[in-house]
Amino acid sequence: MSGLRFVDVCAGAGGLALGLEQAGFEPVLLLDNKPVACETLRANRPRWNVVEMDLLDFVPDEHPHTYDVDLLSAGLPRVRSSATAGRVGTDVEERLLEAAILLAHSIQPRALIIENVPGLVYASAFETLRGFVRKELEHLGYRLHWFVLNAADFGVPQDRKQGVLVALKERFADTFRPPVATVTEHISVGRALRRSMAARGWREADAWAEQAIAVAPTLVGGSDNRGGADLGPTGTKTAWARMGVNGGALADEVPGPEVVGRPGLIKLTDAQTALLQGFPTDWLFAGRKTARYRQIGHASPPPVGRALGLAVARALRS
Results as ranks from 00 to 15, higher is better:
residue 59 V to H: 15
residue 279 F to N: 06
residue 290 T to Q: 07
residue 69 V to E: 09
residue 93 E to M: 11
residue 182 T to G: 06
residue 183 V to I: 14
residue 54 D to F: 06
residue 63 H to W: 11
residue 132 F to M: 12
residue 161 K to N: 12
residue 272 Q to E: 11
residue 25 F to W: 04
residue 6 F to H: 05
residue 45 R to W: 05
residue 283 W to Y: 01
residue 117 V to K: 01
residue 7 V to R: 01
residue 260 V to H: 14
residue 62 E to I: 03
residue 266 I to V: 10
residue 99 A to K: 07
residue 81 S to R: 01
residue 61 D to A: 15
residue 226 R to K: 13
residue 245 V to K: 00
residue 129 L to S: 13
residue 236 T to N: 14
residue 219 L to V: 05
residue 272 Q to C: 00
residue 303 P to R: 14
residue 178 P to Y: 02
residue 112 L to I: 13
residue 192 A to G: 02
residue 306 R to N: 10
residue 91 D to W: 06
residue 60 P to F: 06
residue 307 A to Y: 12
residue 82 S to N: 09
residue 181 A to G: 11
residue 295 Q to A: 09
residue 252 D to R: 15
residue 137 L to Q: 01
residue 238 T to W: 12
residue 290 T to E: 13
residue 208 W to L: 08
residue 169 K to R: 12
residue 1 M to P: 05
residue 180 V to D: 11
residue 169 K to T: 15
residue 171 R to N: 14
residue 295 Q to H: 06
residue 242 R to V: 15
residue 76 L to V: 04
residue 89 G to I: 05
residue 314 R to T: 13
residue 285 F to W: 12
residue 205 A to R: 04
residue 315 A to V: 13
residue 291 A to S: 12
residue 139 H to N: 13
residue 263 P to I: 05
residue 113 I to D: 10
residue 110 R to W: 02
residue 140 L to A: 06
residue 314 R to L: 08
residue 82 S to W: 04
residue 61 D to I: 09
residue 303 P to E: 13
residue 207 A to S: 15
residue 76 L to Q: 00
residue 128 T to Y: 08
residue 21 E to V: 11
residue 35 P to M: 07
residue 209 A to F: 00
residue 59 V to A: 15
residue 304 V to Y: 02
residue 298 H to G: 13
residue 196 S to I: 00
residue 55 L to E: 06
residue 49 N to F: 10
residue 296 I to W: 04
residue 64 P to Q: 02
residue 219 L to K: 08
residue 118 P to I: 09
residue 48 W to G: 01
residue 181 A to F: 05
residue 1 M to E: 12
residue 313 A to N: 12
residue 282 D to I: 02
residue 110 R to M: 07
residue 233 P to V: 10
residue 9 V to I: 15
residue 183 V to E: 02
residue 249 A to S: 13
residue 153 D to K: 00
residue 29 L to Q: 07
residue 187 I to Q: 04
residue 143 R to D: 10
residue 248 G to D: 10
residue 41 L to K: 07
residue 24 G to T: 03
residue 96 L to K: 04
residue 169 K to I: 07
residue 232 G to H: 00
residue 148 V to C: 15
residue 103 L to G: 08
residue 21 E to Q: 14
residue 33 N to C: 11
residue 303 P to D: 11
residue 306 R to I: 03
residue 97 L to I: 05
residue 290 T to Y: 02
residue 93 E to P: 01
residue 58 F to C: 12
residue 5 R to V: 07
residue 301 P to S: 10
residue 295 Q to R: 02
residue 294 R to I: 04
residue 287 G to Q: 02
residue 17 A to V: 04
residue 166 V to N: 13
residue 278 G to C: 06
residue 52 E to F: 00
residue 82 S to R: 13
residue 132 F to D: 08
residue 112 L to Q: 11
residue 132 F to V: 04
residue 154 F to S: 03
residue 90 T to F: 03
residue 175 T to S: 15
residue 140 L to Y: 05
residue 42 R to C: 10
residue 135 K to S: 15
residue 81 S to C: 02
residue 288 R to I: 03
residue 252 D to A: 13
residue 241 A to L: 08
residue 17 A to D: 07
residue 40 T to Y: 03
residue 88 V to S: 15
residue 276 L to N: 01
residue 132 F to A: 06
residue 93 E to F: 11
residue 220 V to W: 09
residue 285 F to N: 05
residue 101 I to Q: 12
residue 112 L to Y: 09
residue 218 T to Q: 09
